[in-house]
Computed example of a mutant assay.
Amino acid sequence: MKGVCKGSNKSVIAFGNFWGRMMSPGKLLLPFLLLLCLLPHLAYAIVVKEIHVVGNRRVERDIIIDRIKTKVGQPLDRKRLAEDVKAIFQLGYFRDIRVDVKETPEGAILTFIVLEKPTVKDVVISGHEKIKREEIEEVIKIKRGDFFDRRRWNETVEAVKHLYTSKGYYGASISSEVEEVPENQVVLYIDIVEGEKAYIKEIRFEGNKAFSARKLRKLMRTKKRGWLSWLTKTGTLEKEVLEVDIARIRSFYHDHGYITVKVSEPEITLGRDGRSLTITIRIKEG
């Protein structure tokens, strides 16, 4: 028993000496620094307890929740939250998105605060007489009831301009306006000043050696304006007809053995008077 007591005393003394050394001012610094390093990681270990969505009126909550990677029960990750906001923006329905993070002892409560884009109440088209409304509506990329999107609206205005150009109205003026109205809606306006159809003053060819310009012009339904244009309804530009003419010229060369011929897209130049057109067609016969 005496030996055991001696052994026990030595163990107690040895442990006491070790603890005393660790409790000395110099030895306390290391555990303290380790604790400071661990604190940020402990903060990020907060678990997501709840996820809420507020501000959505037309877009269902499930559509938004399905887009985010953050889920209930996962550790809170602020980098992932930033990616979630970007993913929701990509839906195209919102003009502002914020995330409120509330930390509680039980976990983090996340609230996605969204502001929807306005919806289109109506699209008003005015000034069209020479092109039917139905044709104009076919090129409009944003419709009644859609969320308003500035890029699609700009594309719509350009599409209407292109429609008039393709019909020969090179001097047509297209203006647009967006009016905000109550209930987070907008009314879109397109005002058209059609002007007169441009007439074809000249059709030129460049690079043709095997066949004369006169020969090639005879293949075309597109004609320059002449004395009888008012009767024959020729002399104005229809892009669809001109495209067929280019294909006809290409086939004509193929039929005569010029298999590698290249016929360029026609270059259309508007004269200083704003009405006369010059069409230039470049050919590489090969």
Rank of each mutant, 00 (worst) to 15 (best):
M220D: 05
F94K: 00
K117E: 08
N154T: 12
T269F: 03
L163R: 05
V124E: 08
K10G: 01
T232F: 08
T269Y: 03
I63P: 00
E83D: 14
R225C: 06
G20V: 01
A172K: 00
M22A: 09
Y93D: 01
Y164L: 02
G92H: 06
D62V: 15
M22F: 07
G20L: 06
V123Y: 00
S251P: 03
V187C: 02
I46N: 10
K2I: 04
V4A: 09
G168L: 02
A210R: 12
N208G: 11
G26Y: 11
V120G: 00
I259D: 07
D146G: 07
Y258W: 10
V123A: 01
K130T: 05
R214A: 11
G73F: 09
G73M: 09
D62S: 14
V123E: 00
E265C: 01
R150E: 15
V244Y: 03
T236C: 03
D62C: 04
N56C: 04
V47N: 12
R272D: 15
V124K: 11
K2N: 13
I200S: 08
L228S: 10
L270K: 07
N208L: 07
R282Q: 14
I140F: 05
K2C: 01
R151W: 09
A172L: 01
N154L: 13
E243R: 10
L270D: 07
L29D: 13
E179N: 08
E137S: 10
R133K: 14
L91I: 12
R150S: 12
T156W: 03
K218W: 05
G271C: 11
Y189C: 00
S24P: 02
A198S: 15
F112I: 06
F94A: 02
K284V: 15
I65P: 00
V124Q: 10
T222S: 09
D96Q: 09
Q90C: 01
K27A: 14
L36H: 05
Y199F: 15
W227N: 09
E135N: 13
R57T: 12
R204F: 06
T104Q: 12
R21F: 06
L33E: 10
V124R: 12
V263G: 01
K27H: 13
F89Q: 05
K10S: 06
D122V: 02
L163C: 08
Y93T: 02
I64D: 01
G145K: 08
T232Y: 10
V181A: 11
T232E: 11
I136Y: 00
K71G: 03
V124M: 04
F147I: 07
V120I: 15
N17F: 07
P31E: 13
E194L: 03
G271N: 12
G73A: 06
E196F: 05
L242M: 09
P118Q: 08
T236L: 01
